[in-house]
Nucleic acid binder design. Structure first.
Lengths: 163, 163
DNA sequence: TCGGTCATGTTATAAAATAACATTTGCGCC
DNA sequence: GGCGCAAATGTTATTTTATAACATGACCGA
């Protein structure tokens, strides 16, 4: 894993390579775990990876319809559920949307920086943030099971474009 | 503000006092700002404060119906929007629900520890967490406008009750 | 008290998610 | 290869959450 995977996506990165790598890693990871990355699940994962902006379930539904004919919500939701369970995607709570995970091999929850203008999101996984949260949890006697850390605002490119 | 306001609510705290204080501060704060805390808004705020568990809009809608007769969704959503704009309540994204803010005078986004068993939530506002996040934002060149930090798990009481 | 603004009421609909049951597919086993 | 089970997908209906658009009412200053 290079640092690149955990930074803000640039306008000119090779996104085809992102998709290819994501699918490849998903294949490998599911194989290792004895899980089935079916055609449907693969298609949904690919659609989630169509960009670095979180995608809503109904957007995916519509796009998926082009590949498969009429598709009902549960079809997409079940695939998303599977992908999430495998750590291949994350759900962005503040957007009701999903984004591909660049480091699915390690279980983690990530911290998401989401630009309200371009819609792009960067996933980080910064130990210092987790640790600061853990300290408070310990103090409270709270056992964390799931973390949601989402920051909305302006990415550098959009802020500079504004000014 | 005592530390008590920013810790896990205990089973035996004087909740009537919580409600009274919250409404009182809301009145004062709105008066200072020249905002109108109407009967409706006050009722909704009171319902949000009916406990320390985040409340869904439709739960509030139903309860509100008992006080006002039939009430339509926009009525509640608009009141919630106002209360949120004034910092009197926070929205919990991971639950689609709302919770009263114990320190509405200072603008902040808070960090929420939410127990999946008893449903209670504690709002904290820990500088170390914000700073750890800020450092990453700076590194990315990202301008944060809105923060969502929500931790789900087990509160001490529920964990101890489990074992 | 007029006129404007803000708040609320009302109706309809959009958007997001899931329940329940039917059907199909993959796969180990004989 | 075919049988039978379990997992995956299809299908229909419904629930839950949220908002758009327009009508009416309340407050407040000139």
């Amino acid at each position: 894993m290079t640092d690149e995977a955990l930074a803000f996506p640039t306008a000119r990165h090779d996104h085809a390579a992102c998709i290819a790598e994501a699918l490849d890693r998903a294949e490998r990871l599911c194989a290792e775990r004895g899980e089935r990355l079916t055609t449907l699940r693969r298609q949904v994962l690919e659609l989630v990876w169509s960009g670095h902006a979180p995608q809503g379930a109904y957007d995916l539904l519509e796009q998926l319809g082009q590949a498969r004919g009429r598709v009902a919500p549960p079809t997409v939701y079940r695939a998303l559920e599977f992908l999430q369970a495998q750590g291949l995607i994350h759900r962005i709570e503040s957007l009701n949307a999903f984004i591909g995970c660049p480091i699915p091999e390690e279980r983690h929850s990530g911290q998401f920086f989401i630009c309200r203008l371009c819609g792009l999101a960067a996933e980080l996984d910064v130990g210092a943030i987790d640790r600061a949260i853990d300290r408070e949890a310990t103090r409270l006697g709270f056992t964390i099971e799931r973390r949601t850390v989402e920051l909305q605002g302006l990415c550098r490119a959009c802020r500079e474009a504004q000014a």
